Amino acid sequence: MVTEISNETILEAILNLERRVDEKLADLSEQSKQSSALITSLTKAIQFNTEEVKECKKRVKDLEIQNDNLRKENCDLKERIREQERYRMRWCLRIKGIEERKDEDIRSRVIQTLGKIPPDLESKMEEAVDIVHRLGKRMDSRNRNVIVVFAQRRVKEEIWR
């Protein structure tokens, strides 16, 4: 048995098919518009992030240069401080072997001792000696060294000679 399909039925099927295709095309068009908007948004975000990364790289490079300059300056300053300390030590004299006493006046003892070395400078010794102190913590078993800082370097040189 053969069923006959009328032209109207075929036409109606074609129109239904055309409507469904049009709906699918409209959906695809809408999805395409949304995808384009999303791609545009992503492109802008990527460009913004690229600019931010470039700026961060520039800042990092600037900070690296600044850090190198500060390191060099720090080394220079350390060397200058060492040089000043070496120069300042020219004004000092270290004395070993002076016996420690309880409640001692080490300055008077050192001035008295140093005054005996060049007798002609004994009267100037009170003014020439600036600071006198012992080095380190007190220990019962040994005497600590004494550092003498002179206010007049020529007096220290005379004593040293």
Rank of each mutant, 00 (worst) to 15 (best):
E51V: 06
K24R: 15
E79Q: 10
Q84K: 14
K96H: 08
E79F: 02
K116W: 00
T113A: 12
C75A: 12
L42W: 08
Q66D: 10
R80P: 03
K58V: 04
E99D: 04
D62I: 02
M89G: 03
E30R: 11
R88D: 14
T40H: 13
D27A: 13
Q112I: 01
W91P: 03
L28W: 09
I106L: 02
S32A: 15
D76T: 06
I98C: 02
R107C: 00
G97Q: 02
R80Q: 15
I39E: 15
D76R: 08
T40Q: 15
D76F: 05
K96S: 10
R88M: 14
Q66R: 14
Q34F: 06
S108E: 03
L63W: 05
E85Q: 10
A45D: 10
R94V: 11
S35K: 12
C56V: 09
V110N: 00
V53W: 06
N67Q: 08
L114D: 00
A26M: 13
R71A: 15
D105Y: 03
Q31T: 10
N49S: 11
E83Q: 12
E52V: 08
L70Q: 05
N74R: 14
D27S: 14
N74G: 02
V110I: 04
Q47H: 11
T43I: 08
I111Q: 03
I117T: 03
Q66K: 09
I65R: 06
D27F: 12
E55Y: 07
E52Q: 11
Q112V: 05
E79L: 06
I117R: 00
D76I: 06
R82A: 11
G97R: 07
K72G: 07
S41Q: 13
K44E: 05
N49T: 07
T113L: 12
K54R: 09
I81M: 03
E64S: 10
R107P: 01
T113M: 10
G97L: 02
S32G: 08
T113S: 05
K33W: 01
K102W: 07
I106F: 00
R86H: 10
C92K: 07
M89D: 07
L42Q: 13
A45P: 02
C75V: 14
K61E: 11
Q34G: 05
W91H: 08
I65S: 09
K57S: 11
A37G: 15
A37W: 12
K44M: 07
N69R: 09
T113R: 04
K24Q: 14
E79I: 06
E64D: 15
E51C: 05
S29D: 12
K58R: 07
N74F: 08
T43Q: 15
C56Y: 14
V110L: 05
I95A: 01
N67D: 07
R82Q: 09
R80S: 11
F48P: 01
E100T: 02
L114S: 00
R82L: 05
E73K: 06
R90H: 10
L42M: 12
V110R: 00
Q34P: 00
R59F: 01
E64W: 03
K33C: 08
K57A: 14
R88F: 11
G97S: 01
S36D: 14
E79S: 11
L38H: 13
N69G: 06
E85W: 05
R107L: 05
D105E: 08
